[in-house]
Design a protein around this nucleic acid. Structure first.
Length: 316
DNA sequence: TCATAAAATCCCTTTACATCA
DNA sequence: GCTGATGTAAAGGGATTTTAT
């Protein structure tokens, strides 16, 4: 689906696409895009890919519009911290090894043993999606949490690990686990950088967070969906306001037109003045200003039987 | 070069579970 | 403790793209 609506400057109907235009609330014009079809320029795969432009995944066009909302004159929520602080594995441009920096990442005190493990461990991680190691993530990360929270998480750890073992027994049961705050935060940071992942990045994240790649994938899918939903809500709100504004404007113009018509009726020769010439299409009765000269106005008078409003010029 | 199947990934929708008031 | 609302992880399905044959 693709919906584009443009009011205002026709030369830049989609100024938000070139990312440089920031529409202000003072601008009468606005542009918006909903739905699919726009490649995210902001994502600029290179920044995400580092040098891994040969992965093939970068060719995929993100169907999401840029995350940043250009419709409304609000300031986007400032990012709490730069990605460099987190050292996301793929953010170092000169990095050829995707695993380089994993350990630096969240400074988990060398926590993710799986991060230094070989590929064989990935399968192990698959079988234990949310093991105690990952649940311990935040604690080792030095996050300040209350005792209760830690206790809850401990219980949750036990529960999830139990569930995981249950799932191993019964693969048909749907497992529902809560990602830890640290995992969510890290995923959020990753998402801020790029809303889509290539397989390498997915694997890196999975190892970093000790989750299954499928979980990373699903999380990003759900996250994109949430973003899109919020975006749609904001867009709808803005469109609603625009609609109201336009309705008011229309009402005002209609009223003005009515007054002019009344004036015309009461003062047939009012428009002998060399003022701005108004033209009206006789068929659709739309009025528009024109640069008509007095001469043309007088010509119109002749053609319209002395009614200067009705110019022969059709501006519709 | 073209056709095609397989794989991967996406989005969308739905379901199921966790949490909270 | 029960219940409804909400949030979200996960699954399933269809569409699209890429790749190998």
């Amino acid at each position: 689906m693709e919906l584009a609506l443009s009011l205002g400057d026709p030369s830049k109907p989609f100024s938000f696409l070139d990312k440089t235009a920031k529409l202000s609330s003072k601008d009468l014009g606005f542009c918006m895009g909903l739905g699919n079809g726009f490649k995210s320029q902001e994502n600029g795969d290179d920044a995400f890919e580092g040098k891994n432009s040969t992965d093939g995944d970068e060719k995929r066009v993100s169907s999401d519009p840029p995350l940043q909302l250009d419709l409304l004159p609000f300031s986007p929520v400032p990012r709490p911290q730069s990605s460099s602080q987190l050292h996301l594995p793929w953010l170092t441009d000169n990095q050829t090894d995707p695993w380089e920096g994993l350990g630096r990442g969240l400074d988990v005190n060398r926590l993710p043993l799986v991060a230094v493990a070989d590929e064989a461990d990935e399968k192990a991680a698959v079988s234990s999606p949310n093991s105690a190691v990952s649940m311990d993530f935040g604690i080792r990360n030095g996050s300040r949490r209350g005792k209760k929270e830690v206790e809850v998480e401990a219980v949750e750890t036990e529960r999830t690990s139990t569930r995981a073992s249950d799932d191993d027994d019964n693969g048909s049961s749907r497992k529902k686990l809560r990602l830890s705050k640290e995992q969510s935060a890290f995923l959020e940071e990753s998402f801020k950088e790029h809303s889509t992942l290539n397989p390498k990045q997915k694997l890196a994240l999975a190892k970093q967070l000790n989750l299954r790649p499928r979980q990373i994938e699903v999380w990003f899918q759900n996250r994109r969906a949430r973003t899109k939903l919020k975006q749609t809500e904001v867009d709808c709100e803005y469109l609603k306001r625009c609609c109201e504004t336009l309705a008011e404007e229309n009402k005002r113009l209609q009223k003005e037109l009515q007054e002019l018509r009344a004036l015309k009726t009461s003062q047939p020769f009012y428009m002998q003045l060399p003022a701005t010439t108004l033209t009206m299409c006789p068929s659709c009765e739309r009025v528009a200003t024109s640069s008509a000269t007095n001469a043309s106005a007088s010509t119109a008078d002749a053609k319209t039987g002395g009614y200067p409003f009705f110019s022969s010029t059709s501006n519709t």
